[in-house]
């Protein structure tokens, strides 16, 4: 387990490094929300999920969707590191004609399961996928990351009702609870709390973890496998911008711009940690 956690921590640093490099200096990019969920995404792609980069449409794979589609960078980094497409393609992010769109596009990039980005919709799509898998008698899981700002969308609660009504225990939602929406603290701007009670009252099995602690992440994902008759919500308490000191907990880095200096500092830090980790 210790060895696994070390490996995953190193992977997560690499993903954050790729995210920083993809955005680059003096360019806008969704740094904060990509870094807050980076550890969960790492645990899913490099440990938990059954998937094969060589057969991205394999029927028996587990599915991963970002309902908060603006965190696409972390998924792109994970997919490239897994070998879904060449790492060099990460440099084409948001370029005209690139497969790496500002928000995930299933038509363009292998490994992307649905078009998300208009907030509130991904959890419904994930629920429909989970329902189809049940109809077909497959035991694949559908993992779906939801944002805490996104919880203000009414459709999230429509999906919450539908998934519990249809007993979609093959659906695991992970709430990236970083406490910040684009314009400030969720508690002050538009409070979506209390979170746990809401999901429980909607009929979900709720777990709550530190979203940057791999032991807790792995344990929660394993616990989710045991739950029957209910969808699972893992509330992952996270820090927006995690791993990038100047961006941690800073709302403006939701879709922020790094100065040349900040960019250099972030690269240096993540590279140094990377060497240390190995």
């Amino acid at each position: 387990m210790e060895q696994l956690i070390k490996e995953l921590e190193s992977r997560a640093r690499t993903l954050r490094y790729r995210i920083v490099k993809m955005i680059g200096p003096e360019e806008k990019g969704h740094l904060g929300g990509s870094c807050s969920i980076a550890d969960v995404v790492t645990a899913l792609y490099f440990h938990k999920m059954r998937h094969d980069p060589k057969q991205p449409k394999l029927r028996t794979r587990d599915r991963f969707l970002l309902s908060k589609g603006h965190a696409a960078l972390v998924q792109y980094a994970a997919l490239a590191e897994c070998g879904y497409f060449p790492l060099s393609e990460l440099d084409t992010l948001k370029e005209l004609g690139s497969r790496l769109q500002g928000h995930p596009d299933m038509m363009k990039l292998p490994g992307v399961e649905a078009n998300t980005g208009s907030l509130g919709q991904g959890l419904s799509i994930a629920s429909g996928m989970a329902a189809a898998l049940k109809l077909d008698g497959l035991d694949s899981k559908v993992y779906c990351v939801v944002g805490d700002g996104e919880m203000a969308e009414g459709q999230i609660w429509e999906a919450a009702m539908a998934a519990s009504f249809y007993k979609l225990d093959n659906l695991v939602a992970i709430l990236d609870r970083n406490g910040l929406q684009a314009t400030g603290r969720i508690q002050e701007r538009f409070n979506t709390n209390p979170v746990r009670e809401k999901w429980e009252s909607f009929g979900w099995h709720v777990l709550e973890i530190d979203g940057h602690d791999f032991a807790q992440i792995i344990e929660a994902l394993d616990t989710a496998d045991q739950v029957q008759g209910k969808p699972v919500m893992i509330i992952a308490n996270t820090v927006k911008g995690k791993g990038i000191p100047f961006a941690e907990g800073v709302a403006s880095f939701h879709n922020g711009t790094m100065t040349q200096e900040q960019f250099a500092r972030a690269c240096q830090l993540l590279e140094a940690e990377e060497c240390e980790g190995r």
């Binding site: 509130g120 799509i125 629920s127 429909g128 329902a131 898998l133 009702m161 539908a162 009504f165």
Partner: peptide
């Protein structure tokens, strides 16, 4: 048959998920 309740938005996205899986 899926009764989705009076929730057309979720119905449309949920159907997208079903279709992506081949329904």
């Amino acid at each position: 048959f899926f009764e989705m309740g009076i929730a057309e938005q979720n119905m449309a996205s949920f159907a997208a998920g079903l279709a992506i899986e081949g329904k």
